[in-house]
Amino acid sequence: MFSKKKMIASIATAVAFAGVGFVATNDVAPQTFAQQEVKADSWINNYIAEQGIQPVQIQYREGTFNNWIPYENGVGKPEGVVVHETATPGATAEDETSYFNNNWPTIQTYVHAFVDASEIINIHSADYAVWGAGPTANSKYIQVELCEASTTDQFARSIANDAYYVAFRLHQYGLPVEYGKTVLSHDQTSKMYGETNHTDPTGYFANWNYGMDQFVAQVNTYYNQMNGSNTNGGTDTGSGNTNSGNGVSSNGSEGTISVSNPASFMVPLVNFNNDKPSKANRGLANNTPWYTDQTKTYNGHKYYRVSTNEWVIDTYATFTAK
């Protein structure tokens, strides 16, 4: 799926990245963006609560984007989250994930995650920057795209999922919920830095009588629930848990692995089924870095997770903790 919105983004982004680092633009003075008032009253937020809608679990899939770009403050140091909207009616998170993975070298645009009413798909480590909102915003923020919904219930569920993803990332990186500072729309970053002309998701939200202030209130709800409690964000929290059985123990272990297989052009992957490893049908390129958020120990070897159920044995991996 593709839209004019994505093409406009690519023009700004192409100028921003001439290599693995950022090219800062110092000739545009950012506008001051005061922290906005957050309104708790929202019929959509109330609908989410009344219907007992719960966010889905975040899926971690390693995408094809092979640029590992530190934020301006360093790897693993984002300053907040930018909320986008796809402007592609009918496209699902699966559709958008597939499109971006196949076309980012041409359109010069990529984000960390896509969200719809039923899925949250994370396709690039949030420890590293992407190409979605112009050079300055790219160097600061995690970026997530919300897919368009066609019914009230779908919209509410997609908002719940999107707000959860934002809250999870803020909580993960120890950032507070601050509207206009750590939670921003693409519309806001366009006004702040003058490097893109996008206004999403403002218009789309307005179609549902919704606004960013109400969205941030929902983010805050989930964020508060995360304090002192478990989340359903998968294993990306880095919090350890142990499951014993058939010689397997599992633990959260967040960081990066560098992979290499001297005997081949690629590093083999394995799947774990019934707590036993089996050869996967894919591999990783030699001498490439991969984000990992969980390990398993089986028969004396440690395995590092690089996607939903794909693992690299320690024989081919060098781990660096986050």
Score class of each variant (00 low, 15 high):
Thr13Gln: 15
Thr13Val: 00
Ala16Ser: 11
Ala16Val: 07
Ala24Glu: 07
Gln31Thr: 15
Gln36Thr: 09
Ala40Trp: 05
Glu50Lys: 11
Gln51Thr: 07
Val56Trp: 04
Ile58Tyr: 05
Arg61Cys: 02
Thr64Gln: 11
Thr64Gly: 02
Phe65Val: 02
Trp68Ser: 02
Ile69Gln: 06
Pro70Phe: 04
Pro70Asp: 11
Val75Lys: 15
Val75His: 11
Gly90Asp: 00
Ser98Cys: 01
Phe100Ser: 06
Trp104Asp: 02
Ile107Gln: 08
Tyr110Ala: 03
Ala113Arg: 04
Asp116Pro: 04
Ser125Arg: 04
Asn138Thr: 01
Asn138Val: 03
Lys140Phe: 09
Gln143Leu: 02
Val144Thr: 10
Val144Gly: 07
Glu148Ser: 05
Ala149Met: 04
Ala160Glu: 09
Asn161Cys: 06
Asn161Lys: 03
Leu170Cys: 03
Gln172His: 13
Gly174His: 02
Leu175Phe: 06
Asp187Trp: 14
Met192Glu: 04
Thr202Asp: 13
Tyr204Lys: 12
Tyr210Pro: 06
Asn220Trp: 08
Asn230Ser: 13
Gly233Asp: 14
Asp236Gln: 14
Thr242Met: 03
Ser244Asn: 05
Gly252Tyr: 11
Ser253Phe: 05
Glu254Cys: 12
Ile257Val: 11
Ser258Thr: 15
Asn261Arg: 08
Pro262Lys: 04
Pro268Leu: 14
Leu269Lys: 07
Val270His: 06
Phe272Glu: 00
Arg282Gly: 10
Ala285His: 05
Ala285Ser: 11
Asn287Glu: 05
Asp293Cys: 10
Asn309Lys: 04
Asp314His: 03
Lys322Asn: 12
